[in-house]
Design a protein around this nucleic acid. Structure first.
Lengths: 193, 193
DNA sequence: CGAATAATCAACGTTTTGTCCATTTATGTT
DNA sequence: AACATAAATGGACAAAACGTTGATTATTCG
């Protein structure tokens, strides 16, 4: 996203700013991190910071969007003829491989709105895989959908906070079985009104 | 919590500071709100602010804790011999009655960690009601527990963001049926390992 | 190489912050 | 009603961070 057309110098600047910012984020809350501090750590002039980002929050948003893009790209690489559990497992693998950043952005301390975006991205793919496209629409199951999405956020958070001690395949199986359970629950019940 | 032993002046100061802060929070993010701004709006001297709170975040935390206390007190008032759906309905009623604050603290924009605390408080009571105390322990169902808690956060968020157009009783029924569904799912499946 | 672009540097006024202390005002008690 | 106590105010302070400026230096890309 923000790397294609950039000058080498720009790439370097953005890279070290992100690194320093992430390093600081591991230690304290974003509200306690000043732009001055980030620049000093990265050894980048403050004027240069403002040339790329408006503030810490803007920088964070861009880091988040990059992770989202990467997960999306990762999903697209996966063979379409794979089952839901295997697909979910791939994602857990990816999170584990990128544990440093993911622990920051996806665990308890991270921004929940962003976390939901990640889940929606993944979940929609999984749902498409399970249902082959239809059977269940978001419309008649909006609340169950919301429940599942945020439920998954909670599971991933717990997993990351526990330093991923359960295997990705264990997690994948669990998430999918919960999802399937909720879907069948939805089908068996008369539509609520 | 912070009202019992306080002088009238202190009560007033805290009250207007909270009011102004909440008013500002409805318009912009906490990171964009300065202490100066809060004090000017509340017509309270900045020195006085520092006598009570260390910063905006401290003030927010105290407002959150108060809401939590109030919900807890509300729960305690409820007759013990009530079923789970009715109990959940009471909570949705309460949220609706306090919509202004709840929309701020419990909807999308609010702090997720706090929202989970609210759900845990309510959910543990409901679980106790459903199971009569045992049958299901947190231990063998930690992830399902995490899933349900955060799932409920998502449902409440969605409900608040939609301006509570569904009735509390509708919401209560849904939440409980989802919860029961997950519990039975947990029982019917061989324990994952 | 040379034009273009990026980063640096120093400087600037502005705003917010957090903490003084002396003074005024309100409160709860006797 | 008067008093001692506690709280809020106002002014002032240095320190820090902010955001922008324009001139200068360095690097990159074609």
């Amino acid at each position: 996203m923000s790397s294609g057309k950039d000058d080498r110098r720009v790439k370097y600047t953005k890279m070290v700013l992100k690194e320093s910012f992430i390093k600081l984020l591991e230690k304290k809350d974003i509200s306690q991190i000043s732009i001055k501090e980030i620049c000093e750590d990265a050894d980048i002039n403050r004027t240069t910071f403002y040339a790329h980002y408006s503030d810490q929050y803007d920088l964070l948003r861009k880091i988040e969007n990059e992770l989202l893009d990467n997960i999306g790209a990762h999903l697209d690489q996966i063979d379409g003829n794979i089952n839901a559990v295997a697909l979910a497992e791939k994602i857990f693998d990816y999170l584990k491989e990128n544990a440093e950043l993911c622990k920051l952005l996806l665990s308890e301390r991270g921004d929940f709105t962003f976390q939901k975006r990640v889940m929606v991205l993944v979940y929609d793919k999984i749902i498409a895989e399970i249902t082959g496209g239809n059977t269940i629409t978001k419309e008649d199951a909006e609340y169950v959908y919301a429940f599942t999405i945020t439920g998954c956020v909670g599971i991933v958070q717990k997993w990351l906070d526990e330093d991923m001690k359960k295997s990705p395949s264990y997690m994948a199986e669990m998430v999918i079985s919960l999802t399937l359970g909720l879907i069948s629950l939805l089908k068996s019940t008369r539509p609520l009104r």
